[in-house]
């Protein structure tokens, strides 16, 4: 549904997006992850036809967003980072206005407006001015605006930013429902959101795609080592040397807490189960073993390891586009 090929965007000498390629199938929900300034918004703005690319092509439902812009825009709904509302317009007037400029046929406008306001739960605010809405309602009106012409493709730039926890859950549900009928591209900072709503993730850093995969695969693939978490009651004792001595353990990180409790993270070689040795060592030293469990590498850790500059090279198979230019 969306084909992004060798997309680059330069502002003078600064490269915001550098040779980004990915594609999104019909009905798929694609998560777009990356730190601030990574080029997420720029990429989204190019997909929606807000700005042209310096190089590369983007097609939406077979229409090039630059040479066939009007047709592509008819099939795209876009919610920018700040909902593009006119503060002096009432919610109903605003959604009606958007319906008209998005090319909804005149006699369908009223019906579409009603349906979309119902779907996004803003009907109760229909006569309120957009400028007087709470952040949550503004976001929903923004979503209504993006949905009004029933587009094939929805591009949502941080759709849950600034919402309260209940609203976030509602927004996620709505987005999940939208997948299937629409192709959705969403960017976010909230990582659990990606594993909950997205079928695929694109991680972008410094303008380049560093990983494209499903959230589960990414988690599994990037677990280069296994990490165990222990909590031990060992007043006055130094646990690090004793644990480091166990065969197969590569790193021990101990952090002393209150009442002689020590929280320990232990990295060990992959595929090697050291839980028995760990337990035995703790007990033999007369310490109390309060907790011992394997730690899964969270999406957060993956995100950090992929997007932090000095984290070293990401695993080769996870990095189709990370090449020399990043360090140039």
């Amino acid at each position: 549904m969306i084909e992004v090929q060798h997309l680059s965007k330069r502002y003078g000498p600064f490269t915001a997006v550098d040779d980004v390629s990915f594609s999104v199938g019909a009905g798929e929900i694609l998560g777009f992850l990356g730190p601030n300034g990574a080029g997420k918004t720029t990429t989204m703005r190019i997909i929606t036809g807000y700005m042209p690319a310096s190089e590369g092509t983007v097609t939406v439902a077979g229409h090039d967003v630059f040479s066939d812009a009007i047709e592509a825009k008819k099939r795209t709904g876009y919610l920018p980072e700040t909902p593009p509302l006119y503060p002096d317009m009432s919610v109903r007037d605003y959604v009606t206005f958007v319906a008209r400029i998005k090319g909804v046929p005149s006699r369908e406008v009223r019906g579409r407006v009603d349906a979309v306001m119902k779907k996004t739960h803003i009907a109760d605010m229909a006569s309120r001015h957009c400028g007087k809405l709470s952040k949550g309602y503004k976001q929903r009106v923004g979503l209504a605006q993006a949905l009004i012409h029933n587009p094939d493709v929805l591009v949502l730039d941080e759709p849950t930013a600034g919402l309260d926890p209940k609203q976030i859950i509602e927004a996620r549900q709505l987005i999940t429902e939208l997948g299937g009928n629409h192709t959705v591209v969403l960017s976010t900072h909230i990582l659990p959101e990606v594993s909950q709503t997205c079928s695929r993730v694109v991680i972008i850093a410094r303008g380049k795609v560093v990983a494209v995969d499903t959230p589960d695969n990414l988690t599994a693939r990037l677990r280069g080592s296994e990490t165990m978490y222990l909590q031990v009651a060992a007043p006055g004792a130094d646990v690090t040397p004793a644990l480091s001595a166990i065969a197969g353990i590569t790193r021990v990180k101990a952090e002393a807490g209150a009442n002689g409790l020590v929280a320990i993270e232990v990295d060990c070689e992959q595929g090697r189960d050291v839980r028995r040795e760990l337990a035995a060592t703790v007990v033999n030293h007369g310490w109390g073993l309060l907790e011992l469990r394997p730690m899964r590498m969270s999406l957060e850790d993956i995100f950090l390891s992929l997007t932090t500059e000095d984290a070293g090279a990401p695993p080769a198979d996870a990095a189709p586009a990370a090449t020399e230019a990043a360090n140039a």
Partner: peptide
């Protein structure tokens, strides 16, 4: 300033 330019420029308008 208010960001509504993004709405206009991403709508099927010339």
């Amino acid at each position: 300033r208010s960001g509504t330019m993004e709405l206009l420029l991403t709508s099927p308008l010339t």
